[in-house]
Design a protein around this nucleic acid. Structure first.
Lengths: 150, 150
DNA sequence: AACCTATTTAACGTTAACGTCAACGTTATG
DNA sequence: CATAACGTTGACGTTAACGTTAAATAGGTT
């Protein structure tokens, strides 16, 4: 299994090393260390990081909100022992309902964002159309001028 | 024409008064004033403000980038005298090409965001499915238990 | 006119998300 | 094995986007 040092991760993810260390500082990452205490990232770590960036940029989550998001994903992909070990059925049921609720809200939010972006997109396309018509007119004007000068 | 004072605008847009004044401070708004210097907002001002919020939240534009966005829109809807009055054809052509370019980049960005959100959406839906299956199993477990106790 | 509530400017405070720098330890390389 | 290149931990600095407070005006109500 190949391991990466922070500089490679930084350039692959287009982040600074500082940013990556900061994300670890606030608990979004926790790579293993070498004997000499150098951070070593697995492929998984990197993919996880990329997803974090994506969610930050595209969903507009704050780094704090990303905690919640990651928690939910890992709870379900079962990487968290603490959730698998809950034995009380009622407790477990409440957990699941809360997650379902969170997911529902996030889905609503994403759909709403997509609708809004769609409408901005349509506006931008319309504006672009106008620009192109404007350029058409400019073209004709300069032709007319050239003819007049003759 | 009805005019609104800052408090009404604030509650309609879910912003604080401070935020609205701040947006004016950095040049995103410029409402008229009463004789006593009170800010008075038109419907147009309010709609513009709402759009700004939308772009900020959904497109993730910084308030600085929003300047550029607004500039482009107003340049084309023709509210800016300074652009209509450009007489040099070559200059005007360059302007239009630059706008077209900007719009193109923004469109690319929006499409990319929509794709990313779509994939997050699909993941969330899949996770939700898993949660519901989990709840199903919980339901059966408790039934089995009740039967066993009998 | 008195009074109360809302608004304005000015100025300093705060927080998230990093940037930057120093001092020191680690790794790779000729 | 020397030494350059890279990594680590503080710690303080910076910037955007507001929050908060104070002191002075404005606007509406009785």
């Amino acid at each position: 299994m190949t391991l990466y040092k922070i500089d490679e991760v930084a350039s692959e993810c287009n982040l600074t090393k500082r940013t990556i260390r900061y994300y670890e500082e606030i608990g979004l990452l926790s790579p293993q260390r070498s004997e000499g205490n150098t951070r070593l990232y697995t492929r998984e770590d990197i993919e996880r990081l990329k997803k974090i960036i994506s969610a930050r940029d595209v969903l507009g989550f704050s780094l704090q909100e990303l905690h919640r998001y990651i928690e939910v994903v890992e709870m379900l992909t079962g990487q968290r022992e603490r959730y698998r070990s809950i034995t009380d059925l009622e407790e477990r049921r409440r957990q699941l309902e809360e997650i379902d609720d969170t997911l529902g809200k996030q889905l609503d939010m994403m759909e709403s964002k997509m609708r809004t972006i769609q409408s901005f997109k349509e506006e931008a396309e319309q504006l672009r159309q106008q620009v192109r018509e404007g350029m058409e007119r400019l073209g004709r004007q300069s032709v007319e001028r050239a003819e007049a000068e003759h």
